[in-house]
Design a protein around this nucleic acid. Structure first.
Length: 124
DNA sequence: GCCATGACTTATT
DNA sequence: TAATAAGCCATGG
């Protein structure tokens, strides 16, 4: 019998991951955010890498808009030409986001949430 | 428990 | 513009 209430095979970083997933879900259609930006908004400043880990570990059924998360310079984080990079590019373009050379102009598409938007997200 | 790896970022040169 | 370094830290061997 386990001595605590946690699921046996639940990763130790579950709570941060939940916050990250939740934050990513708030990115509006047609906008993008950087890994670091998501980390900051999720209350995990400086932990951009964890955002990558969290997305990698995200169950597919969650249908997170993972494709809206890019590097701080607007580049897709996957190797150019990889299947994943192609899919991400396609998903972005299907939202009318201009992608040139696997790169998005953040000055044009970066998500800039206002306070009300973030507070609304907290309700879920 | 140490070590390498990585869907990263920022500062520095 | 590009390369380097350092900070970050969960995860797997």
């Amino acid at each position: 019998m386990q001595s605590d209430h946690k699921a046996v095979d639940m990763p130790a970083a579950t709570e941060p991951y939940l916050r990250i997933w939740h934050t990513v879900k708030l990115i509006p259609v047609g906008r993008v955010a950087s890994y670091g930006q998501i980390a900051d908004l999720a209350g995990l400043p400086g932990r951009a890498r964890m955002v990558g880990k969290a997305l990698q570990a995200a169950p597919k059924h969650m249908q997170l808009p993972w494709h809206r998360v890019l590097r701080s310079n607007g580049h897709i984080a996957f190797p150019v030409g990889s299947e994943t990079a192609e899919e991400q590019k396609g998903r972005l373009q299907s939202e009318d986001i201009v992608v040139l050379k696997y790169r998005v102009r953040l000055v044009d598409y970066q998500w800039q949430p206002d306070l009300a938007e973030l507070l609304f997200g907290l309700a879920f």
